[in-house]
Design a protein around this nucleic acid. Structure first.
Lengths: 196, 196
DNA sequence: CTCATTTCTTAACATAGGTCAAGTGTATTC
DNA sequence: GAATACACTTGACCTATGTTAAGAAATGAG
C-alpha cells in the first residue's frame, strides 16, 4: 500500500532505493473509515498525512459550530496543519476523512533524515511552499472579489478530479457560501445553458 | 538610506560585513512619491522590494475596475508578487506606494549569491515562507467565516502599527467590504462602547 | 489663507446571499 | 427490503452588505 508514497519520495527527493530503507521505519501506515477524525483543533499537529487512497479535508469550526473547509486532499496529496507542524503550536484545524482512506503519515524525524540524505529535498520543499502560497493568494483574491457563481465555476475548473466525489455542502463550505445558495447558483447555471 | 536593509541582512542571513560587500552591487535604491506604481499586472515581477521608509501595497484590479488589496508593507517588510518572482510568470498584482517611500529592491542574483555565502539563509527563507502561509491561512479563515465587524476588529489588532496611516477605504478593500460598510461598522462600534 | 482634491460619513434604497422549514430523493444499515 | 439517516432542492422570508448619491471634513497645493 505505501507504494505510491515510496514512488513519490524517490521521484521528488531524488534518492536511491538503498537510501529509502533508512527512512522506512519512520513511515507509518493507517486505514480509516469515512468520517474518522485524524487531527483535532488545539492538538499539536506532529505529523503530515499523505493520501495513498481516498479523500481527506482540513477545516475549522467557528463559535456557531459551523465548519469552514480550508483544504481537500486526494491521492498523492499532502495534508496537515503546516503552521502547527512547523512551529509546534496548537492546530487551528481539524482533519478528517471524507471517504474510506489509506493514509501514510510521517513526523519531523522523517523530514530531518530526508534533508540529510537528499540534496534535492530542500529545494523541492521550497517549491511546494511556493506553490501553496500561489494557490492561497489566488483563493484570497477570489474570496475578496468573486460572486458565488464565479467561485463555483472556478472550483469545478480547478478541482475537476475531485468535484464529483465531494458532497455539495462541502464545496459550499470551501467557497464560503451556504449550501442552499450553491443549489440556487447551480439551478441558475443550468437555466442559462438552455435559454439562448 | 539602505542602512536598515544592511542591518536586516546581516542579522538574518548571519553574514559578515566583509561578505556583504559582495552583495552591495546588487542592491538597488529607489525613492518614490506617494501613488507611484512599482509593478504592473502582467509584468514579470523580477524584483523584491524592501521598505526602508514609507508604505506600499499590492493589489489586484477586477473587471469592474475595483481594487482588492492583497498586502501592505511598511518599514522593514518585503513586498513582491512571490509567485511571479519565483516562477517567472506574469504578475497578478500591482504594487504601488501609499506614502512617499524609500525602497530597496533586489533581483534573483542577489538571492543566489546570498544562498552561496550564507548557511543560514535557506532556513531563514523557509521560515519566512512558513510565516507567510500561516498568515494567509488565517486570512482565508476570516474571509470564509467572519462578519465585517470581526474582520475589522482583527485587522486593527494585528496591524496596529499601520492602521492609523491607512485610508479607511484601503482597509475596507483589504477586508473585502465596501468603504461605506466599514463606516457603518465603525459607527456601530462607537455606539456599543457608550450604551452599557 | 483659499481653493481643490481626496477621504469619510450619512441616508435611502437594492440585492445577493443567509436562514428556516419542508419536502424529495438517495444511500447505508441491519 | 424496510428503515434510517444523509444529501440535495425549493420556497418564503430576512438581514448584512452593496450601491448610489450627496454633503461634510480633512488634507494638501499654490
Amino acid at each position: 500500500m505505501p507504494d505510491n508514497f515510496k514512488k513519490y519520495i524517490l521521484d521528488n527527493a531524488g534518492i536511491t532505493e538503498e537510501n529509502y530503507k533508512e527512512l522506512e521505519p519512520m513511515v507509518y501506515t493507517l486505514k480509516a473509515k469515512k468520517g474518522t477524525i485524524l487531527l483535532e483543533q488545539d492538538q499539536i499537529c506532529d505529523r503530515a498525512f499523505f493520501v495513498c487512497k481516498g479523500l481527506l479535508r482540513s477545516y475549522t469550526v467557528d463559535e456557531m459550530g459551523k465548519e469552514h473547509i480550508i483544504q481537500f486532499a486526494s491521492e498523492n496529496w499532502w495534508i496537515a496543519d503546516r503552521s502547527s507542524f512547523y512551529f509546534d503550536e496548537p492546530s487551528e484545524l481539524f482533519i478528517d476523512t471524507i471517504e474510506d482512506s489509506e493514509v501514510i503519515y510521517i513526523k519531523k524525524d522523517f523530514f530531518n533524515k530526508l534533508e540529510q540524505i537528499s540534496d534535492k529535498f530542500t529545494s523541492f520543499n521550497t517549491l511546494a511552499l511556493q506553490k501553496n502560497i500561489r494557490q492561497m493568494q489566488k483563493r484570497i483574491n477570489y474570496l475578496l472579489a468573486a460572486t458565488a457563481e464565479k467561485k463555483y465555476l472556478d472550483f469545478i475548473e480547478t478541482h475537476r478530479e475531485i468535484t464529483y466525489r465531494l458532497p455539495l455542502q462541502m464545496i459550499a463550505s470551501y467557497l464560503g457560501i451556504a449550501p442552499e445558495s450553491l443549489s440556487r447558483v447551480r439551478w441558475e447555471l443550468a437555466n442559462k445553458n438552455f435559454k439562448p
